[in-house]
């Protein structure tokens, strides 16, 4: 196979994205996780640019790395995140995140299997030809159906697993955002508010 520069860049960016994902999980502060996540999103947008889909690049960059990222950062700054929920050691990290880790491993194995399958196997020629989506309706249609078949037949499992992953992330963020306060420490005003009574100020 001839050497392709964009392929080299693709693998470089892919490694960069994986590194960012690991750093999102491994960072001690929530803000650090947030900016690693934004860097990961920028990497994904560069992948779109490599696939010649400029419009997806723009949407990924402006919506996810721009808009959603600001929301995320505001949320992260406003959360209490001074203390770690677990020991600052590898064992503590593993103990706290083993459920997420198992899901991640399943997801990653599935992804790697599918990517290897589609890259090495010639059964999916439509993936490599997506860049020059055709001159005619018929060609474009065949490409789109090919892509849809690919996603919904073989990638269906990945989407389910990804849904699980998002669910875990939501549960994790809820756990992070919840404040456990001693009921005695609260002021009378807050106690009244908690009981649903009107507070005269």
């Amino acid at each position: 196979m001839a050497f392709d520069f964009t392929q080299f860049i693709f693998f470089f960016i892919a490694v960069y994205i994986l590194l960012c994902i690991v750093m999102v999980l491994r960072s001690e502060k929530v803000m650090q996780s947030a900016y690693w996540l934004i860097l990961m999103l920028i990497g994904v947008s560069i992948l779109f640019l490599l696939a010649n889909s400029e419009i997806l690049f723009v949407f990924q960059l402006s919506i996810y790395s721009g808009g959603i990222a600001v929301l995320l950062l505001f949320a992260a700054v406003l959360t209490e995140h001074d203390e770690l929920g677990f020991d600052n050691s590898l064992l503590g990290f593993v103990r706290a995140t083993f459920s997420q880790f198992i899901i991640y491993v399943i997801f990653a194995a599935n992804m790697v299997f599918l990517i290897l399958n589609s890259v090495l196997d010639s059964a999916y020629p439509q993936i490599s030809e997506l860049a020059d989506v055709g001159r005619t309706y018929a060609e474009a249609w065949s490409q789109i159906t090919g892509f849809a078949t690919y996603i919904w037949d073989d990638m269906a499992m990945v989407i389910i697993v990804m849904g699980l992953l998002v669910l875990t992330a939501i549960l994790g963020s809820v756990k992070l955002a919840i404040r456990e306060e001693e009921i005695e420490d609260l002021s009378e005003e807050v106690l009244l508010r908690l009981k649903g009574e009107e507070v005269l100020t």
Binding site: A34, E54, V58, L61, S62, G66, G67, A69, V70, L73
Partner: peptide
């Protein structure tokens, strides 16, 4: 010579708000 020249510039400038916030926090 992008087909989406204007949006391209716009998307790149949308990286400013998060990274100015990160710079301020850091």
């Amino acid at each position: 010579d992008f087909t989406i020249g204007f949006l391209y510039v716009f998307a790149l400038f949308s990286l400013f708000p998060p990274f100015m916030l990160i710079g301020g926090w850091a």
